[in-house]
Design a binder for these strands. Structure first.
Length: 575
RNA sequence: GUUCUUGUAGCUCAGCAGGAUAGAGCGUACGCCUCCGACGCGUAAGGCCGAGGGUUCGAUUCCCUCCAAGAACACCA
């Protein structure tokens, strides 16, 4: 991958060295004074402090060295020691012509935990961000050369399953799963996702009112966790139905998981884990439960101990989580494990991570929690359906889809449904990743689907425009190998934007946030649209100009595609 | 209650390893189609960066206090 900023930064570093100033790192940024230069370097002032010298003096010396380099069109000192830099057209052209957009592969493995679907419960709006952000971060890491593995970490082993099985047993007492000493194969029973969708909420609310029912559910959960014959077989059938359902929705969202493991898999490691922890002497008893103290001296806030086992011996969220880390470390040897989950779960993960470190389960592995903010309704309150229930993810996707369908160009006759679906996903994903990761945001259908502004449809439209222009160039046999000139401020603006690619991707990686990318996509689109209206590629008579512009259009399309692929956004041919 | 997070234009949000004149989008007001998709483009107005202190040559950015909002706080996941 070619790195424009690094070139500039290294040149400045060399110049500083030539003047006998040593710096660890030079960071150049886009100028906020475009009247003075395209880029700026502000590092002279702090340097002057170290060397007890006048910053303007240092800056002038450095500038004199840089001025010798034909790479720069202009370098000057302003104010207390800012260095303003402009690049020569020749250098810009040479850089654009380098076709080098791939990062070298490295041997680091990042393990991703996102999605977090629960079996027997339909995916709801709360699952949207985890899938979007997780998938995009995973693709970003892959693009940057990391190896990745992703796992949904299904919630398939806790009380919800106990509740569902209990309720099914009450409704179908004659099912053989619940008969003791049943011999032979268990029959395949009629379980549909619709049924599960109805059963869980019913059982869940009943457990809240009915203490007896709750106790029965707890007992059933325990029986499941003991893998009791019959109960476990029924569970397998529930799993199959539910997993398919989950996969379908994730497919729609372009979220592809390498693993569909879950708490139940981690459960296999629980005995080993408990045995291991026992030897370490870090498990304590508290109010009947087994806990691991994870407090640190440096804590400013109270840090409750991690609950390992319930007083009835049952497993908890944290237990399976810890066992999952155990499993992952043992079987996949990741360098890092990234958890993309609602930021409200941060305390829970902090506890588990600390326990994992304390128990020396992870050794060098780094456990990273990347929490995201909540998507709320338009009113800023938690997203609900009209009757106050939790909105299902499918329903949300469908509502966006029908809104997109309404706005589709009426002249398009074929595949309207399919196009609307692609558009809906683009719309939702773009809107979802536009705020920075930790920001809560409000779902606003009208706003997201609007063709004006920082929206998915605008980005999609611009990309379609690029594609359509490239097709026209092909039809007219207009070929392009390279850019040979910069004609005006419009193509130049585009080039300067393109130079940022590597920076943007690295910022996104460092912050584990996609907003740098969504924002950059908007910048590219808007710069392209301006270029498009001002520079008429097809009927430009100057052949060099035409070729340069055609080449540029191709590059911008290519970079756009790279970014959209990272975000897992597809682009229809028309809209 | 304790702790954490957030407070930036009318609205929604970026920026915040300190830097020059704080940026977008929407909305508002004006413009631009005999040419590659006007589902586009341009121009303008709009800000004491929650308040008050501090550190610094320099603070929206770092530290402290206060005010306001949100979230998390052991046998649910």
């Amino acid at each position: 991958m070619k790195k424009f900023y690094s070139i500039v930064e290294n040149k400045i570093k060399d110049a500083l060295n030539a003047c006998d100033y040593k710096v660890d790192e030079v960071v150049v940024s886009e100028s906020n004074r475009p009247d003075l230069g395209e880029y700026q370097y502000n590092g002279i002032m702090p340097l002057a402090k170290i060397y007890h010298k006048n910053p303007v003096e240092i800056a002038s010396a450095v500038v004199n060295v840089l001025k010798e380099d034909k790479f720069f069109r202009d370098v000057n000192v302003a104010g207390p020691g800012f260095i303003n830099i402009s690049i020569s057209d020749e250098a810009l052209i040479e850089f654009v012509n380098q076709d080098d957009y791939e990062y070298p592969q490295n041997n680091k493995l990042i393990f991703f935990d996102y999605g977090g679907a629960n079996v027997a419960k339909s995916l709801h709006v709360g699952h949207l961000r985890s899938a979007n952000i997780g998938e995009a971060l995973k693709r970003l890491c892959e693009y940057l050369g990391y190896n990745t593995i992703s796992d949904t970490h299904l919630g398939d082993w806790g009380r919800p399953l106990g509740l569902v099985i209990l309720e099914l047993s009450l409704r179908n007492p004659d099912w053989p799963f619940f008969k003791e000493n049943y011999q032979g194969e268990y029959p395949k029973v009629e379980i549909t996702s619709e049924l599960l969708e109805e059963v869980y909420p019913y059982a869940s609310s009943k457990a809240k009112e009915d203490e007896e029912y709750l106790k029965m559910a707890q007992a059933m959960t325990k029986r499941l966790q003991n893998k009791e014959k019959g109960i476990y077989d029924l569970w397998l059938q529930i799993m199959e139905v539910s997993k398919n359902d989950i996969k379908n929705i994730y497919d729609r969202l372009n979220a592809k998981f390498d693993l569909y493991k879950g708490e139940s898999n981690a459960e296999d490691y629980v005995p080993e884990l408990l045995h291991y922890l026992d030897k370490l002497n870090i498990v304590e008893e508290s109010e009947g439960a087994k806990v691991i103290d994870v407090k640190k001296d440096t804590d400013t806030k109270e840090m409750p101990p991690m609950l390992l086992l319930k007083s009835d011996g049952g497993l908890l969220y944290s237990t399976t989580e810890l066992a999952t880390i155990f499993d992952r470390v043992k079987n996949y040897h990741p360098d890092e494990i990234w958890y993309i989950a609602d930021k409200r779960q941060e305390l829970h993960f902090t506890q588990v991570f600390r326990a994992a470190y304390k128990a020396n389960i992870t050794k060098d592995e780094k456990l990273v929690f990347a929490g995201f903010g909540t998507m709320n309704g338009k009113d800023g309150k938690p997203f609900k359906t009209r009757d106050g229930g939790v909105m299902r993810l499918v329903d949300l996707l469908d509502s966006v889809k029908s809104e997109c369908l309404k706005r589709l160009n009426p002249e398009i006759e074929d595949n309207r449904d399919e196009i609307a679906n692609i558009l809906a996903i683009a719309t939702l994903k773009y809107a979802d990743m536009l705020p920075s990761r930790e920001t809560d945001y409000n779902f606003d259908l009208e706003k997201f689907c609007d063709l004006d502004g920082k929206t998915g449809p605008y980005i999609v439209y611009s990309t379609i425009r690029m594609k359509s222009l490239l097709n026209k160039l092909k039809e007219n046999n207009i070929n392009y190998q390279k850019i040979s000139l910069i004609a005006n401020e419009y193509d130049k603006a585009l080039i300067l934007s393109l130079n940022k690619l590597d920076n943007v991707l690295n910022n996104a990686f460092n912050d584990k946030s996609l907003n740098a990318i969504t924002d950059y996509l908007y910048e590219l689109s808007t710069n392209f649209n301006r270029f498009y209206t001002e520079c008429h590629v097809l009927n430009e008579s100057d052949k060099d100009k035409q070729e340069s512009w055609a080449y540029l259009t191709n590059i911008i399309y290519k970079v756009n595609k790279i970014l959209l692929d990272i975000l897992a956004i597809d682009i229809p041919d028309k809209m």
